[in-house]
Design a protein around this nucleic acid. Structure first.
Lengths: 344, 344
DNA sequence: CGGCGAGATGTTTACGTCAACATGGACGGC
DNA sequence: GCCGTCCATGTTGACGTAAACATCTCGCCG
């Protein structure tokens, strides 16, 4: 590697407290006091320092501050499948809550949710740069074997199996799936078919199990499950098969995207929604109200999930307390035009 | 604020190089050399140090490293409307590219894209913690008056007006809109109607202008514009009005979400797509292929935009060079089932 | 067999900030 | 008028790292 002179590629360092101090004719410590809003500074002096700061464009150096305090005031988010509807919403809520607390947020994307990638995310992005971590990973083989997270770093897990020792925040998946199933049953349908998400996903599993046990509780037959991968395409494929069976009158898709594909399959097969077949989704995406027909679905509050995750993490960071109670965020049934009583 | 003893809320600092040095019986400097993969270390010594690191769980302290080097190896992303389809995709691409370069990424969300919020994002999250910034803001009043960005911090702007002095990376909006318009014209439609995005959005403006000038070039009448706000609901409202006019046979919606609302309005009004009315969208969301009918649209590569933004920024960081050439990412017409020749 | 260079390792110091302690002046009570 | 107090401000040092420089040990060549 060639040597450069200081001006070439080296970042020219910004002005430091010492520069401000010289400019204002005070000591560095006084500058520090002003920068941190301490009260024991004469008003005139404070003004002079503030003016000097503005004049030379002083910005506090967060690295030095972090080094001094042993705290970074920032939290990391390990996330996979960021552009996913739910994940991006949750991330947004997390980010908003985090900055509201005066922390900043470091994003650690992983391409695939494998064990190695996740542990790598910790070490690769030197984990000494965060005070805590939120793990937001859709489907994980993680559960296969314990993943080792660095020493005493506070961690909150969203949407995980209960295998972790860390606080968990999530939507009440079981309750949502039960609502969807009961809604269809209460309209008079004999039973409810299901297009599930990928079995590696813990949310998908919970929705599937809850759908099943709700049917069993009501003494209904449990039809075979179609398995998708959350994508509209997989919903479409499953829908094509379901549409061919005239006994199918009610379908619960594990998310809105698969419901969209399902609707398309039903249209193409000439099965009218909701007159012949009723459909319920899960998520309540922005788009769902404008599907054709507008989709009845289960709304989950990603915002609440994000907020709870942040507050749990911050509490853990401040008190040093280990894992608190898991938090379960309730869901809501949104009835639109894709459900109706079965044809008589 | 009450005083705590060291064990209470104070983050217990992890082991430092000094600890490793003592454990391995070498000097701190040698530990540093091993940590940084320098070659001038005896193999036996290196092994010993590595073992010591593992034994006591050493992690490099990035704050101290940043302080020493004057570099953070991290870049900030100022983003508004994160959960938006395009933004989350772009952010994902940015994140992937950034970590591939060994940098980490700090998220700075702003709730509204006002001048104050954006400048606040710089100072609030002490901007000394990043080596550069990518601004990803959908619609901005920013252009109203110059926003003052901190001194010599490298900046890349995505989807902005040309008012900035910073490198700009964006989709070739004009080209995309022209493709959409010409596609409809080439099917035999007399003219093309347009549902535009919000006028504050520079992308929306460019799409609208390109649609208009394409029509003018072809000597077609330019119908009045419907203005939406990107949401399916606004597309639906505009669609209701358009559907009532029997002379409307071809509509170009400025994004897929508004196209979705438009499709619903056409269905509700009993206007068949594509037999009576053709529709083209813009974005090519995952869902678009499964709209009813599957949507003809303009695909833009958010991935390419993200990648280019990162490489432009990194180049600027390394060389210190000011604003490079703006980058324009091409679009692609994806023909599906929502377009056809007009009814004869 | 003395000297010299190369490579391994140690020592010093500075990066920017802020807690802890030190200093120094003003003011009030007796 | 002397002393104790309080408040503004200054000085010192340490956080963990790594560049620069210093030292020490070999081995090789003349």
């Amino acid at each position: 590697m060639p040597r450069h002179t200081a001006t070439t590629s080296a970042r020219r360092r910004g002005p430091s407290m010492a520069d401000v101090a010289k400019e204002a004719g005070v000591s560095g410590q006084t500058v520090s006091r002003v920068a941190n809003g301490k009260t024991n500074v004469d008003d005139a002096t404070r003004e002079r320092v503030l003016a000097a700061m503005r004049r030379i464009g002083y910005r506090p150096n967060s690295a030095a501050r972090a080094l001094r305090n042993g705290q970074f005031r920032s939290i990391g988010v390990i996330i996979s499948a960021l552009p996913t509807f739910g994940n991006s919403r949750t991330l947004d809520a997390i980010a908003a809550a985090v900055v509201a607390e005066g922390f900043s947020i470091i994003l650690m994307p992983v391409t695939r949710p494998t064990q190695g990638e996740v542990t790598g995310a910790f070490s690769k992005l030197n984990e000494q740069a965060v005070d805590g971590v939120i793990i937001l990973i859709e489907q994980h083989q993680l559960d296969q074997s314990e993943i080792e997270l660095p020493q005493g770093l506070p961690v909150v897990v969203i949407d995980s199996s209960a295998r972790y020792d860390y606080p968990i925040v999530d939507t009440d998946q079981a309750d949502g799936a039960a609502r969807a199933t009961r809604h269809l049953l209460s309209l008079g349908h004999e039973t409810v078919w299901h297009i599930a998400g990928p079995p590696q996903s813990y949310s998908a599993e919970r929705r599937r199990r809850s759908w099943q046990s709700t049917l069993e509780q009501e003494g209904r037959e449990v039809p075979p499950v179609s398995v998708g991968d959350w994508s509209p395409e997989s919903g479409y494929q499953a829908g094509l098969r379901l549409a061919a069976d005239p006994t199918v009158t009610a379908i619960f898709a594990a998310n809105d995207q698969m419901a969209l594909g399902l609707l398309r399959a039903l249209h193409e097969s000439g099965r009218r929604v909701p007159e012949e077949v009723s459909v319920v989704g899960f998520d309540d995406m922005d788009e769902s109200a404008h599907f054709w027909p507008p989709l009845t679905t289960i709304r989950q509050s990603f915002e609440a999930v994000g907020r709870h995750a942040v507050s749990a993490l911050l509490k853990e960071i401040e008190t040093g307390a280990e894992a608190g109670e898991p938090v379960s965020v309730p869901t809501e049934l949104v009835v639109r035009s894709s459900t109706a009583p079965p044809p008589s």
